[in-house]
Simulated scan of single mutants.
Amino acid sequence: MTAQRIYKMSFANIYPLYIAKAEKKGRTKSEVDEIIRWLTGYSQKALEDQLEKGTDFETFIAQAPGLNPARALIKGVVCGVRVEEIEEPTMQEIRYLDKLIDELAKGKSMEKILRK
């Protein structure tokens, strides 16, 4: 999948995949939402509004009210690429989210996922 293609995909189409991945491993939708809110600064209402609007991934990231500065602590590999080495900012933000959802599915505690 090229970077441009994922940017134009509706976040509302990806969101259920994050939830399914988490629930398959015994985690919850509310934990997925908490991760998204922590990373982006969206309130729950604003997140739901973005989902309703069908906002594309690029716009979802660009309009994030406050990207969490602690996201720089997210390290590791997603899709064979180290997230901390991704140079394109929007792609890095998307992969940060992917990495956090992976950590949730692997059973990490929310405290560790949210870098507390």
Rank of each mutant, 00 (worst) to 15 (best):
W38A: 07
K24A: 10
E84V: 09
F57H: 10
M9F: 01
R27I: 08
G80M: 03
M91E: 10
F60L: 05
C79Y: 08
K24R: 14
V78K: 08
L73M: 12
I94S: 00
C79K: 11
Q4R: 12
T55Y: 07
E111T: 15
T40A: 10
I19R: 03
K24H: 02
T28H: 09
K29T: 02
G41S: 04
R71G: 01
P16E: 11
R71T: 15
M9Y: 01
K8H: 09
E93Q: 13
A12N: 11
A46D: 11
Y18P: 02
A12S: 15
Q4C: 10
A105W: 04
L97H: 03
V32E: 02
Q44G: 15
G54C: 09
T40R: 02
P89Y: 07
R27L: 05
S43G: 13
F57Y: 13
E85I: 05
V77Q: 12
M1L: 11
L47P: 12
Q4S: 11
K53F: 04
R82P: 06
M91F: 08
K21V: 03
M1V: 05
F11T: 06
K112P: 01
D33M: 09
L104P: 01
I6F: 04
R37P: 00
S30D: 11
L104Y: 00
S10T: 07
I35M: 05
K116S: 09
V81H: 07
A70T: 11
S109G: 13
L17C: 06
F57W: 09
R5A: 10
K53H: 10
Q50I: 00
I36H: 06
K116P: 04
S10H: 08
A62K: 14
L17F: 07
I6W: 03
I94P: 00
Y15F: 15
K106D: 11
R82W: 06
N13Q: 12
R5I: 06
T40M: 14
S43D: 12
P16M: 06
D56A: 04
F57G: 01
I101W: 01
G26I: 08
K99M: 14
D98K: 02
T28Y: 00
Y96Q: 05
P69D: 12
V83K: 07
R27H: 12
A64F: 01
E84G: 13
E85Y: 03
K29W: 00
L47C: 10
I36K: 11
E48Y: 08
Y42M: 13
F57D: 01
I35P: 00
G26C: 08
L51W: 09
E87I: 10
G41R: 12
E58V: 05
T2K: 13
